[in-house]
């Protein structure tokens, strides 16, 4: 079961995330669970594989907003990185970066088991 302690251990800035949820722990944890089940992660991988930079930016930008609001810092940092690459249409291999993001997300998913 996902807890704030586990999230803190993961590296999330739990205090900040909780504060945004007006101190409501149940809401915070529910939103984190919802966020990590977001199908957008799979879409991000597809975009990376297809090198669809515009679509990749769109998805990454949205994911960045959500993870930042929940202060899932380690995941958010990775997503920020790929967002900037997509934004500047950098010629890079996006597949391993997307894979790293999904692995980080999976770490979070594992916390819920």
């Amino acid at each position: 079961m996902l807890t704030v302690e586990k999230l803190r251990a993961f590296g999330a800035n739990v205090e900040e995330g909780l504060q945004r949820c007006v101190g409501n722990e149940t809401l915070y944890l529910a939103l984190v669970k919802k966020a990590i089940r977001d199908p957008a992660y799979d879409q991000l991988r597809e975009a990376a594989e297809k090198k669809d930079l515009d679509r990749g930016f769109e998805i990454a930008h949205a994911l960045k907003g959500v993870t930042a609001n929940l202060s899932l810092t380690p995941l958010c940092d990775l997503i920020s990185g790929i967002t900037e690459l997509f934004r500047h249409k950098t010629d890079a291999d996006y597949v391993p970066i997307a894979a790293a993001i999904i692995a980080k997300r999976d770490e979070l998913t594992a916390l819920d088991n």
């Binding site: 945004r20 949820c21 007006v22 409501n24 809401l27 939103l31 919802k34 966020a35 949205a62 907003g65 959500v66 609001n69 929940l70």
Partner: peptide, 13 residues
């Protein structure tokens, strides 16, 4: 706001 999480956070605020 299309992101459910963001919408919920703002609503809670």
């Amino acid at each position: 706001e299309d992101e459910f999480v963001n919408r919920e956070i703002l609503s809670a605020m």
